[in-house]
Design a protein around this nucleic acid. Structure first.
Length: 239
DNA sequence: TGGGGCGCAGCGCG
DNA sequence: GCGCGCTGCGCCCC
């Protein structure tokens, strides 16, 4: 019954005006973006528009041309013993020498390509954070989605944020506290909903991912594609 | 104007 | 972190 306990005009916090960058980085001569701060118990996120429409359009077009997505076994997932095609497309890019685990396999990301470096470098400049890896999810329309999950923290640098940059169709994005899920929730915590717009950046700061699940729910009225880049700091591979 | 039907969204379950 | 089936709700139409 947590049918959007946060109404759009509550979850969709007002612009916060000119403020310092959220994590103490230098902005390198760029004007500070207008951050909107999302805060709840254990939830610490910051949202801004990172790219204006013209630049976002250009990046989106290039992503659509250049990104190579997984096919075959890597485009499938096993849940409760049954294999399914994931309801979206996925790809990974990152620094040479990194490895990560995906669908139970140890993989190496593809090397960076210019359009991804461009977005990564803008995120780094605006946040002062560095990232060595990006997971790309492409949702062809509102039927493509991702279910509630937390990102696997075992491979992430402890306390490092995840930077989520969106292009294309605007989609709802949902946070739900881990203790407020299921038939008999231990606590009643309001879900937090926001919309991820074309050219936007959502910083998911520590400890958000420890306490809150997130999802991109089905929205049948959305007909256009969305490409999402989540930049991460992955721990170097153990020798 | 109101009620029925339909489609969407959320949730429990495996 | 998947799809299915069920349910509730809101909106549209007559």
């Amino acid at each position: 019954m947590d049918r959007f306990l946060v109404k759009p005009d509550q979850g969709d916090l007002r612009a916060a005006g000119e403020e310092p960058v959220p994590s103490g980085g230098a902005s390198g001569g760029q004007p500070n973006p207008n951050w909107r701060h999302l805060r709840a118990q254990g939830l610490n996120c910051d949202y801004t528009i990172l790219f204006g429409k013209a630049e976002a359009d250009e990046i989106f077009r290039e992503l659509e041309q250049k990104v190579e997505y997984f096919t075959g076994a890597l485009a499938k997932v096993q849940v409760f013993g049954k294999w399914h095609n994931v309801p979206r497309k996925q790809a990974t890019y990152g620094d040479a020498g990194l490895t990560y685990t995906f669908s139970g396999l140890t993989l190496t990301p593809k090397p960076w390509i210019p359009v991804l470096e461009r977005v990564r470098d803008r995120v780094c400049r605006v946040t002062g954070q560095s990232f060595n890896f990006v997971l790309i999810n492409r949702y062809k329309d509102g039927c493509d989605h991702i279910g509630e999950h937390r990102d696997d923290e075992r491979e992430l640098a402890p306390g490092s944020p995840i930077a989520s940059v969106s292009f294309g169709a605007c989609r709802d994005f949902l946070f739900r506290h881990k203790d407020s899920r299921g038939k008999r929730p231990q606590r009643t915590m309001e879900a937090v909903r926001l919309q991820l717009a074309h050219g936007s950046l959502l910083m998911m700061n520590h400890p958000t991912n420890t306490h809150w699940y997130h999802s991109l729910p089905i929205r049948k009225k959305v007909l256009a594609p969305r490409v999402n880049l989540t930049f991460r700091k992955i721990l170097p591979t153990e020798k």
